[in-house]
Simulated scan of single mutants.
Amino acid sequence: MLLQEKESGNLVEILDIEALFSPKETTVKGQYQVGEEEQDPESFDKGKLNFPSGESLPQCWIDTNYKSA
């Protein structure tokens, strides 16, 4: 799955989909999709990612207390 880093606008390929969907995880492993060579995996703060369309990630992926809000 590709997401976009809010600040830079760079695309990030998410390597751990389960961590992305889990509201208990605040970070997710991914790698930038820039340049010709594959980038090294790194950890990304889920709060700093959104969909390439500009939409935010669903609250249930980020907030463990989303049901009580």
Rank of each mutant, 00 (worst) to 15 (best):
M1H: 00
M1F: 03
L2H: 03
L3R: 01
E5L: 07
E5F: 05
E5N: 08
E5D: 07
K6A: 03
S8Y: 10
S8M: 07
G9W: 08
N10P: 05
N10M: 10
L11K: 13
V12Y: 00
E13P: 01
E13M: 04
E13W: 04
I14P: 06
L15C: 01
D16S: 07
E18M: 08
E18N: 08
A19W: 01
A19D: 09
A19K: 11
A19F: 00
S22W: 07
P23H: 11
P23K: 09
K24R: 13
K24Q: 14
E25R: 10
E25P: 05
E25C: 14
T26L: 13
T26I: 13
T27K: 15
V28T: 09
K29N: 14
K29F: 15
Q31P: 11
Q31R: 15
Y32N: 05
Q33G: 06
Q33C: 13
G35T: 09
E36W: 14
E37G: 14
E37L: 15
E38R: 15
D40T: 12
D40I: 12
D40R: 08
D40E: 14
D40C: 07
P41Y: 02
P41T: 07
E42C: 10
E42M: 11
S43Q: 13
F44T: 04
F44I: 03
F44M: 03
F44Y: 06
D45Y: 10
D45W: 08
G47E: 02
G47N: 10
K48H: 06
L49T: 00
N50W: 02
F51L: 00
F51N: 00
G54N: 03
G54E: 01
S56P: 03
S56H: 00
L57Q: 02
P58F: 03
Q59D: 10
Q59P: 03
Q59I: 08
Q59W: 07
W61C: 14
W61H: 11
W61V: 06
T64A: 12
T64R: 12
T64F: 11
T64W: 07
Y66E: 02
Y66D: 04
K67W: 12
S68F: 05
